[in-house]
Design a protein around this nucleic acid. Structure first.
Lengths: 232, 232
DNA sequence: TCAAAAGTGTTATGAGTACACCCATGA
DNA sequence: TCATGGGTGTACTCATAACACTTTTGA
C-alpha cells in the first residue's frame, strides 16, 4: 500500500449566542473561517490544527483557538468524539479530535478577516466533515443545558431572567418559560440573585432583578434521571 | 528537542456481570491481561493496541479485542475520551482512544492464559493510566443505565425481572427495587414480556415470567430530564 | 391611568419510590 | 399447608409545566 503519514489534529466548534436579524431573538452561532486554498477552497472550516509533540489535546485546542479568537473569551471547552475514518480528508491521514467551546453573549473578540460567526440554523457550505462536528457539538450543548450548569459559559456575568431565557431559547432551539427556568435553576443552586436590579427598558416596565451563575466551571446538577440510589 | 514518534493506540474496558464469591450477588468485572515484560511487568492492562493505517477506531477496537476474547460476544462498544498527555507512558508518545465494551452475563468466551476477569471493586495493580480508564468507563455505564436501554448488552436474551435486578444492581453498584425496575423499563418500552415462564428455583416459589429487551442496539429512552420542549 | 415587562401563586401532570399485600408453586 | 419467591396495587413525594394574576415601572 502507499505509505501515508498520519497526523493528529484538533477541531473546535465555538458557539456563542448572538443577535443577527432581530435583536430580540438572538441565535446560536458558530465560529468559521473560509478556506482560501484547495482542497475545498471557498468552503468554511472550524478553527483547529495539528497537535504538537509537547502538548495534550486541551492545550492544543486553546493554542489553535488563539489564532482565531481571544482565548480568554472561551469560558468552557470540552472534548467531543474522534473522527478517525482513514479517508475523511484527502492527502495524509488526519485523525481529528473534536471539541466544544463556548463564548459568553455580548463579548466581541476581534477576528481575522477570513473568520466570522454563522448562525447554526443556516450554515454555509462546510469543509470535509466539519458540518457533522457542528451537529455533534450542538447536540452535546443541548443535552448539557438540561442536566448541568453549562449555561454559565453562554451568559454574561449578571443578567435578568428574561435575557437568560433568550439565551437558553437560542441555544436549545425552542422557547422556554422564564418562570420555570428561574425556578429550575434556582432550586438546583445553578443561579443566585445578586441583589441588584437593571434599569427598565425603553418601553418602560418593571425593572428586572439581576442574577448570576453560582459557579464558573461545569458541574452536573441532575445526575440521576431515574434509578436513583435508595434514600435510606 | 528529542525526536519522538507518536502512535495512536486503542484501549478497551470490557465489562461483564459475573459471579465471584457468592452466586446470588454477581459483580461487575473487567477484562485484564498481565504484562510479562517491562515496562511495568506484572501490572494489569486493558486489551488494546496500535491503530493501523487502514482502519478507523471502532474497527481497530474490534480487531484488538479479537486477540483476547471472542468478539462476537461483545454486544456493545462505544468511544470514551482520549488520553493525550505527552508522557502518559514511557518511550514513544502514545495517544490512547478509550472504549467501553459490554459482554452479556453467562457468556464464557475462552481467554488467553494471561487474561482474566477482575471485579471492578478490587482491581489489581494497573498499568500506566489504565485504572483511570476503568473508572471513566464505569461512570459512563452507570449514567447510561439511567437514560438508555444499554442493559441489553449486559443481560441474557431472556431473563426474569429478579435476575435483571441482580444485573442492574451489580452494574450500578447499588440495589434496585425489582418492582420499580420492571415498571420503569416497561413504560419506556425497553423490555417486553416474552409470554414464557422459567421453572421455579430449587427452594420452590412461583415461576417467574420471562422478558427480553426490545432492541439490541443502544437507544436513548429519556432524553430530557428537564427543560423539555413544549407539548403543543 | 395605561401599557409593558417582571415576578408570584396555583394547579395539573407525570415519573419514580416505597412498601404492603396477593398469587403460584414445590415440598 | 407452609415456606419461598414472583407479581400487583396503591399511596406518597417531588420536579416540572402551564398559565392566570399581581406588582412595578415609564410615559
Amino acid at each position: 500500500m502507499i505509505h501515508r503519514s498520519t497526523v493528529h489534529e484538533v477541531l473546535i466548534a465555538v458557539f456563542q449566542v448572538r443577535a443577527f436579524s432581530d435583536p430580540d431573538s438572538p441565535e446560536l452561532a458558530v465560529l468559521l473561517w473560509q478556506r482560501a486554498l484547495d482542497p475545498e477552497a471557498g468552503t468554511w472550516s472550524l478553527p483547529g490544527g495539528t497537535l504538537r509533540d509537547d502538548e495534550n489535546l486541551a492545550t492544543s485546542a486553546r493554542r489553535q483557538l488563539a489564532e482565531k479568537v481571544d482565548v480568554r473569551s472561551v469560558a468552557h471547552l470540552e472534548q467531543l468524539s474522534i473522527f478517525s475514518e482513514p479517508d475523511r480528508v484527502p492527502g495524509d491521514r488526519r485523525i481529528a479530535s473534536t471539541f466544544l467551546g463556548l463564548v459568553p453573549i455580548s463579548t466581541e473578540p476581534t477576528l481575522p478577516g477570513d473568520t466570522t460567526w454563522h448562525p447554526v440554523s443556516a450554515l454555509p457550505p462546510m469543509s470535509f466533515d466539519h458540518g457533522t462536528v457542528v451537529a455533534h457539538a450542538r447536540h452535546r450543548l443541548v443535552a448539557k443545558l438540561s442536566y448541568t450548569n453549562i449555561g454559565f459559559a453562554l451568559a454574561p456575568v449578571e443578567f435578568s431572567i428574561s435575557s437568560l431565557r433568550e439565551i437558553y431559547g437560542a441555544a436549545l432551539g425552542y422557547q422556554v418559560d422564564a418562570t420555570n427556568l428561574q425556578r429550575v435553576l434556582s432550586r438546583r443552586g445553578v443561579i443566585e440573585p445578586t441583589g441588584r436590579r437593571a434599569p427598565s427598558g425603553k418601553a418602560g416596565g418593571r425593572p428586572p432583578a439581576l442574577f448570576r451563575f453560582a459557579d464558573n466551571s461545569i458541574r452536573v446538577t441532575d445526575e440521576f434521571a431515574a434509578l436513583r440510589p435508595p434514600q435510606a
